[in-house]
Simulated scan of single mutants.
Amino acid sequence: MYLQNMKKLFFLLLLSMSTIGYAQEKSAARQFWENLKKHCGKSYEGSISAGAGNDDFSNKKLTMHVRSCEENTIRIPFFVGENKSRTWVLTFANDRISLKHDHRHEDGSEDKVTQYGGTSTNAGLPEIQFFPADQQTSSLLPNASTNVWWITLDKDLFSYNLRRIGSDRLFTVKFDLSKTIDTPSAPWGWKD
């Protein structure tokens, strides 16, 4: 009887150790998500490092505000000067992250070009996630069918990037995470 109980105890111990080890392992997507959530409520100033020829962005203050962090949704308004029409919406489901672009008019109504983006095809890395254009994007913006967006994130830097495969189109904006700035007012369509 003693030997039988010891075998059961040993088996349960091994089982619990393997379960604990499994529970402690987090996927790269989960690590990225948790690291991004650490910035909730904070705002940062950015600068264009590629694609600077875009007149809509030239000589304007670029601000990101990790404004809303729910369990599976993070909303990051991205302001270009006084234009508060853009919000990056990230969602986490099934160990994949999706990126959508929510565009609004000043009155809060949706722009006709909104909710485009894509979903990661794998868990990525803790410091980078890729989002190839999805079918909704392809239907809404046929020229964007070959778009790939990616976000990099480490302790000092957040970058938002866009590359249109098969073209020269590249856009990168980098935000210095070592320096927070004052929280801006609400983006268009939001209430403080």
Rank of each mutant, 00 (worst) to 15 (best):
Q4S: 13
K7Y: 10
L9D: 07
L9F: 14
L9M: 12
L12I: 09
L14G: 12
L14E: 02
L14V: 10
Y22M: 12
Q24V: 10
E25S: 12
K26S: 09
S27E: 06
A29R: 09
E34L: 14
N35Q: 12
S43G: 09
S43K: 00
Y44D: 02
S47P: 00
S47R: 14
G51I: 01
G53F: 15
F57V: 09
S58E: 15
K61R: 11
L62V: 00
M64Q: 08
V66I: 15
V66F: 14
S68N: 14
C69M: 01
E71R: 12
N72M: 07
T73W: 02
T73L: 11
T73N: 10
R75G: 01
P77T: 02
V80L: 12
E82L: 13
E82W: 08
T87E: 05
T87S: 09
F92I: 00
F92H: 07
A93Y: 05
D95V: 04
D95Y: 06
I97N: 02
S98F: 03
L99W: 14
K100N: 12
K100A: 11
D102F: 07
H103I: 13
H103W: 11
H103N: 13
H103E: 10
R104F: 00
H105D: 10
H105K: 14
E106S: 10
G108Y: 02
E110S: 14
D111H: 12
D111R: 03
K112G: 10
T114M: 03
T114N: 01
Q115F: 15
Q115A: 12
G117S: 03
G118R: 03
N122P: 04
P126Q: 06
E127V: 14
I128A: 10
Q129R: 08
F130Y: 15
A133T: 04
A133K: 04
Q135P: 01
T137P: 03
S138M: 11
L141H: 02
P142W: 07
A144F: 11
A144T: 04
S145C: 05
T146C: 09
N147C: 07
V148Y: 04
W150Q: 07
I151E: 05
L157Q: 11
F158A: 09
F158E: 03
F158K: 02
S159I: 03
N161V: 03
L162S: 05
R163N: 12
R164Y: 01
I165M: 10
D168V: 05
D168W: 07
R169N: 08
F171T: 08
F171G: 08
K174D: 14
K174C: 08
F175Q: 01
F175T: 01
F175E: 00
D176V: 02
S178V: 09
K179E: 10
I181E: 05
T183M: 07
S185K: 15
W188E: 01
W188H: 06
